[in-house]
Every structure is written in structure tokens, then in C-alpha cells.
Design a protein around this nucleic acid. Sequence first.
RNA 1: GCGGAUGUGGUGAAAUUGGUAGACACGCCAGACUUAGGAUCUGGUGCCGAGAGGUGUGCGGGUUCGAGUCCCUCCAUCCGCACCA
Length: 940
Amino acid sequence: MEYEFKKIEEKWRGFWAKHQTYQVKEDANKPKFYVLDMFPYPSGAGLHVGHPLGYIASDIFARYKKLEGYNVLHPMGYDSFGLPAEQYAIQTGQHPAITTEENIARYRFQLDQLGFNYDWSREVRTSSPTYYKWTQWIFKQLFDCYYDDKLNKAVRVSALISIFENDGNSGVSACTEYDTVFTAAQWKAFSEAEKEDVLQAYRIAYLADSWVNWCPALGTVLANDEVVNGVSERGGFPVEQKLMRQWSMRIKAYAERLLNGLDTLDWTDSIKEQQRNWIGKSQGCSVRFSLYNQVEEENPVISSNSAKLNKESFIEVFTTRPDTIFGVSFMVLAPEHHLVDVITTEEQREEIEAYIKTAALKSERDRQADVKNISGAFTGAYVLHPFTREKIPIWIGDYVLASYGTGAVMAVPCGDQRDWDFANHFNIPIKNIFKDIDISASAYVEKDAVITDSDFLNDLTCKEAIVKAVGAIEERALGKGKTNYRLRDAVFSRQRYWGEPFPVYYENGLPKLVGDESLPVELPEVDAYLPTEEGEPPLARAEKSAWNVSFGERMEYNTMPGWAGSSWYFLRYLDANNENSFVSKEKVNYWQNVDLYIGGSEHATGHLLYARFWTKFLFDLGYIPFEEPFQKMINQGMILGRSSFVYRLTNENTLVSFSKKEGLQVTPIHVDISLVDNDVLDIEAFKVWRSEFQDAKFILEDNGTYVCGSEVEKMSKSKYNVQTPDELVEKFGADTLRMYEMFLGPLEQSKPWDTKGITGVHSFLKKYWRLFHINNDFAVSEDEPSKESMKVLHKTIKKLRDDLDRFSFNTGVSSFMICVNELTDQKCNNRRVLEQLTVLMAPYAPHITEEIWEKLGNTSGSINEAKYPVFDKQYLIESSFDYPVSFNGKLRFKLNLPLDLKVEEIEQFVLANEETQKWLDGTAPKKCIIVPGKIINLVI
RNA sequence: GCGGAUGUGGUGAAAUUGGUAGACACGCCAGACUUAGGAUCUGGUGCCGAGAGGUGUGCGGGUUCGAGUCCCUCCAUCCGCACCA
């Protein structure tokens, strides 16, 4: 019988579905293993061959672990809220739920075709109310907690309120931007609105006016990780800064733990480094510079604005180089700094206001593009140096960011290149406080200098000076040692329709949580998926009656961002159908966190950071027993497309074959890869493909074919280089495609897709099939296996285990090929050998191995229930070895010698050898290196 | 500029601990069989050379009996970050 992959694969897909082969239950008697794929957004285009790469790898690994006796959880679901379905809805009026449903059906069909062992009874969809009910519930917990810096964890707001009621807020150490001190009595006197205002400044999920990335084209705000180079990640639309009342997540509170936790994770350095970068911890010190008062020098308050300045007669800066405090030549405030307006003198006001205006007009992107362009303006005001009492001019400049630190810097041009450039540009004198260092051409940014001209810091190294300076600053109450993070709180609302509604309503203008018993708040029907005329989000269009839950004056009109649902989905799989809790204690205690997570590296500062944040939060509240969601992660590389080109003569409808275009003026044109086989163009099909080529002339190769050129590019529709798995499954079968995708190379590496090699893998499967057949009849021998065959088998077992344990899927495929080649050469059709090989191959090629497994007489069940073969080294024991004999490290010949020889005996044999004598040419070797079982090297 | 990764035949790649470089596969060349197919099988295939042999893992150095592997310098490509005080 031929290898009829279509029949076989269809048969087993049906079998697995019918017998629910891949459903898993908690089992205390077995060790658990949790393998997870990053779940996909179900787009309209379906899967291309790049998507399944990671899924195949995780599937192989999950199957391997299962055969090894683990209880393996391997679920799949859909990140089904998102912009494309909504954009489509805006264009067509079709409800995004319908589009999403259709796309999911197509994804599911494609995934099933590849024979994955997902437990579909645990499927989750972030857009399903039964799922987002719990996303809303988690949001409620985030709203109901603040971050206590002393306990270093999230704590209920009710606890905070009772502290306020008893002691006010002076003793509270929490992550908050609230900096006014109140007493218990004052707290009690606050109105409800005032109290809520204070609490918002503490809550982990909070409502606040914040500068956000507003994307007019998408009609929504974006998180920092969704903005790339000043444009939206999706669509590449311009993004501007806008002050809006928005929900945010106080992820800042977790900055330190998010940073430290990285050390416990088995992730690539590159991703960890990206997260460290994003968190951006820097240690330094805050310093307050008193404002200089021209009228009354001893009482540093500017008279004209004295009323406003009474509270703040200083500018606070953050610096990582307190050792350079005596090198301060000027101050720079961000144009948006709240004191700019107050301190600017009348003479400078016009210039400052003009500058602020131009700075505000610049988009984020312009500012970034304009780094080399130094700009700023002098306010006319001064601060006093805290130690020298010198007058220091205050400038504003857009190289200082309002959102980092205090929005103000003490400029030390001798030690900071940006400050140096600014001083140089505006002719501000530069002080040098580094001994024997020339700063006439650029700042000296290394930390290895010795400090001079700096009073009590003289002759200290930077390191020593930093410690001493911080001490002095703290002693005089000018500031204190401080850690800053670049990580910003994450904006959590979107002005869109297709996302989770908030479990929030407004009463007297105050946000209130919807009770648990009313969850989920479902997405209401709207008449259009567009903002209202007043610019309110689409949900504002919904009639009161359209909401399944409606309280107060109105419901929250924003929806949650894409990362809400994906921040905890890995937990829902553990207990996907639980109606009483997002996950039961019992199940989460059994399954724990993800042992192996496979997905792309593009989520480094988005999903992967947010999921870690929510996990830590849920851990703090005691809902889950671990702090990190994904213990080990592998980032699969991107599969690139291989585009084909034809070459058209400039200004002529003549197409020139690849090797004939030399020296001619030609334009390369993308041609659909389905018209090209092994770079040879199907000319007739090509003529039909696009009408303009109908009458084209061709300059062909000498053998009469048209050969196309090729280039490796990202897969995209416009380049006609998209390869879907569907056609390949149709042509070669899922087992071939699975193995071929693995065979392409290391999982982590990006590689071009090229179907050329797929026939090799397909032939291999046919060759494997033939091992079991004589003249197309199934036949295996029941005899004792030969020594040689057992050796081949066990060599393969060892290799496969080693390869899988280090996630080297490509070398595994090669090993199978070698094994089948060798067994074919041996004419081995021994049951005991082939049965083991079949189990070994089952993770890679589940369909064909099920078929063989059944033919071998295992009629009752699936090969999924088999035991993974165990390596026995006795089969590999050799009595002799082909020693490579080299001279000065160069291999000359091989010498077969028994392995039980002693080093001296080997030496005798080697020296006595004729070949050796030839190469020695009568001289004695200077040295004889012999590594038994490995190598012989003679130094001459 | 900073950080990370990667450089091996015509192509995808292998070499796990410093020990036979190029396994396995594609492609190509030659051949067998043939129901002429995108089937199967045999042999060859890094480069130079008729051969003996020489040479060869981005470049140049170093350590070592021995280096794709370790160290230093440089180059190229990709990715991330980029006024973060």
C-alpha cells in the first residue's frame, strides 16, 4: 500500500476528535507540564506558514512530555478583541463579533489540519462575555487596591481608608502621586468627591487626567508600547500628545519587582534586556535649588509672584551624578514644567511663550527626529546653588522631558553631553570640575575622573563623591537619595467599541464599580462603530436599554485595551469553564505557571510585561501561588517570504530570463510564487495572471525556460509571496509540513521560506512507510532484532531525547532521516526496532505514526498513550574505534584500534604504522597526543 | 551612540564539553529502471589541482599538541533602545 497521507490524516483527525484524545484532567499522581503558545489574533487573512512554526514546536514538545509520563496542559484560544475587526465593522457595518466568529472558524480549521494536540475543551476567547466577565472582575480588584511600599505588595483600599480615618496620610508609604499631607480629621471632613479624588491617586487602576498618545486616525489613545517611532504600531498613523481623562494602571508600583523577577526567568537575554531598558531604573538623588529673589536676596522668593511661590520657592531636580553638583552651570526645565509661567521675568516672557508654543506644536515624532537641533530659551530667573549660593540661570528646553523625574535638570555641561551641547549652543560658560581632563571639545561622561574645584568633594573619585554628596544633600535637607524609573503608568482606556466594557458606572460624576453579581457588563449594541458627534467613544451611542447592566447617570464609555484580556489568559486555561471564579485555587495549585511559553519576541515590552504585572498583583492578593507567569520562553524566528521576480526591459513589454538580463536595463517585477516552480516560470499561467503580460515577449534561457530571480522579504500579499499551510497540507500532508517547518533550522532564527526542500522531507516519510511494507503489503519481522539495528535505534533515541531537551527540533528531524536511511540499508523490518522508532517519531508526525501504530496491532488506543523509548547505552558499546591520526593537527589517515588499549599501547601501534612512518619521514615525533576514543595527534 | 543577536558550500543547515568541519536535506552532475512522474534507486558534489597535495568556518591577530568553538581588534547584517538627567 502506498503512503496515502490524505486518507490517513483525515482518519486520525476524526479519531482524535471522536475520542477526545487530547483532553486533560488534573491528576495528582502525575507531574504536570504546562506548554503554552501565544494565542493569535484571528485576522481575516488566516494563517500563513510562519504562524504554525511555534505551534508545531510546542506541539512536538507537549507530545514528547506526554509520552514521558507528564500530565501535559496544552491549550489554545483567541485574542479576539482588536482593531482590524472593528475597522472592518466601520467600513461595512458588520458587527465585529460576526467577523471574529468567521475568522476563528477559519483559524480553527487550519489549526486542526495540522494535527495539533490542543485540549479544545479549554478554549478561551477574550471577546466572549464568559471570559471578559473575569477580566472585568480583575479590573475591579485593581481598582480596589493600592500599592503599599512598606509591605511591598498590593493592599485593599479599605485598609488605606481606615489608616486615613485614624492617622491621616502622613504615615502612609505608598506608590502615589499625591503629595499633600492631611490629618484624620481633615480626611473625615472631605466630601465624598474629595475623598475619591485622593483615593484615585492611590488606586492601582485609576482615573486621571494624563498626557496620552492620541491617535486621531484610529480615534483612540495608545499605550507607550503601541507607539513606535512616534507613529501607531498598527497602521503607522501620526500620534500626538493630548491631555485626557483616562483609566491608567499603576504599573510603576511594580517596577522594582518586575526588574528583579527577570533574574529568575529562563528567557533570552535580549528580551530581558529590553524589559530592563523599558523599566529604566536609575539611582540618584533629588536636589532642591532655591529660587533667587532679586529684591530680597536673603529671602529667596520672587516678589511679583510671591503668592504663588510661597508653597514652592524651589525647583527640584533629579540627578544620577550628585558628585558633579559643583559643576552646575544652569538649570533647564521642560517647557511644560508648571513653574515656567511663574518664574519667567517680564523681559523674557515673550520669548519664553513663543518657545513653549513651538515646542507644543511639535509632535512626539518631530521631537525625536529633531534631536540634533538644539533649542531653548532663557526665563530670566535664577536659582541659588545650594552649596555655593551662586546665581544659576534657569532655561527651558525641549530636551528635558516633562514626564521623567521632576521635569527639570541641573545642567552640568562638563559631565553631560546634552548639557554641554546646550551650553555650547547658547554660549553659557562651562565649568570644569574634573582634574586634568580637557572638556573643550566635548563633555567627559566617564565616571573615572577625580573631582576638583568642588569644595568638600575635592580629590575624590566619582564613586566616593556620589556617596559624600548624597550625604551632604540629605544632611542639609536639600533632597534625598532616590530611585527613578523610566517606566510610565500604562493608559488603560481606549475610545473604541470592540473591547471589554469597564465594570464601572458614574454617580454624581464619580466612578463606581458594578457589583460582582451583575458581571459581566456586556457590550451594548450601537448604531455605528464610530465616536459620537461630541467626540465621545462609540459606547456613548448605546441607549440605556441596550446595556445589560446600567447604573447611575451613565456607564463608562471607554473600553479596555488589547492587553487586558491577554494579561491573564494563561490562568483561564487552567479552569476555563469555571463560573464562580476566574480560576479555582485547586486547579491553579495543581497546574501552576507556564513551564514553556513559545511566541514572538515582538511582545517584549507589551504583553510580556503586562502579564507579569497582573500575575504579581494576583499573587499579592493570594489568588495564585506564583509571581511569574512564564518560567521559560522561546521566541521563534520569523519566517520570511521568498519573492520571485521577472525582469522587464525598460519601456518594453519584454521579459528577460534571469541569466540573460546582465547588462540590460530591466525593472524587477514581483510575480506570484504560485506561478513559479524551482524558479522556473509557468509562462502560460503568467500571461493569464495579469492582462498586461498577455502579449509580452520573452527572452528565455538556452534551454527554453524562463528563470525567475528571487529575494527574501517579509511575507505580504503585495509581494505575492505568501504561502499558506493549506496548499502544502493538500499537496504533501500535515506530517510533512510539520517536519519540514522544523527541518528549516533552529526555531529561534528567522529564515526564508522556501518550499524547495519539502520534497526531501516528504520522501523521508515515504521511506519510513516503506520500512513496514514489502511489495506494498504491511509486513514486520518478529525476530530478534540485529545488533546493528538496535545500535541505530538507540543512537537515535539518545539523540532525540538530547535534541528535545534543548529544543533543537531541526536536528531531531535529521536524526530520523539518518535512522531511516540506515535501517533501510540494513533491510530492517524488525517489529521491536520499528515500533520504538514509531513512538519516537509520534511527536513530530502524529498522523502517520498513529496509522503505523495501529497496523502494528495496537488496536485499542492512540499512540498518545505509549511510553517514550528509553535509551540503553549497552547497544552502543563498541570494541574498536577508527582513530583519526593527525600530524600537527592535520588529519592524514584513520587507524582502527581496539578501544581497550592503554595510551602507551596506542602509541606503539601508531608509531609502528606504515602510514605514520611515511608522514614522519624518518624523524621522531616531538610529542604524541593521544585521547583514547577520540583522537591521535603527532607533533613533528 | 548604547545594548543584544548572527556571520560556516550554490541553498537551508550540522558539529551539545576545545578533538575527524560541512552530518541531514535541497539543488546540481552522471547513471539505472520506467506505466514518462513532482516516482524509485545508484554514484558524485566546499574551493584550487590531472594527481600527489594544497586550502578552507566574515577580516586580522593571540592562547593551545589541536580553535567554527576560548581571548583581543576590526568589518558586515539584523533586532531593540535612543535626549531618561
